[in-house]
Amino acid sequence: MKIKFMLNDRSQTWHTEPGESLLDLLRRHHVVSVKKGCDGSTCGVCTVLMNQKPVLACTVLAVRCAGEHIHTVEGLADEVEKISEAFGIEGADQCGFCNPGIALALYALKAEHPEADAAEIKQYLEGHLCRCSGYQSQVKAALRYLGEAS
């Protein structure tokens, strides 16, 4: 079956099967910022924005994206660059596999709650596993990004 949806503000009509996840659909079309870490709703590296809200691309069936707006970091480069600068300053980037997902979460957090403090950031990012950083530098980077952004 074919579905039509908006990907990074451009209309796309792609073939999918009912069982396919949005994650597999995107990666099949070489949207490689979206990673597969568990394929089971438990790690957060596949996060994308659906109608500006973070969702797990592995958990959302592709067919259900018909008519919806999906954003990945590829489509939000300006803001993501700011986030990456904050990560760079705090030394929060290591292997980077979790980073695109976290960037999208921070982008959404900024829209939802730009004054978030460290505790709120931690709670908001909780679904994003990172085995490298120990997390603290990520929170510092997030504070820096939100502070500079507001």
Binding site: R27, H30, V31, V32, S33, V34, K35, K36, T72, V73, E74, A77, V80, E81, I83, S84, E85, F87, G88, I89, G91, D93, G96, F97, N99, P100, A103
Partner: peptide, 17 residues
């Protein structure tokens, strides 16, 4: 800052898959 953090966060093709 790391030499590669930005490109990675921007989702450029980088990993094996």
């Amino acid at each position: 800052p790391s030499v590669d953090g930005k490109g990675i966060m921007l989702g450029r093709p980088a990993y094996t898959d």
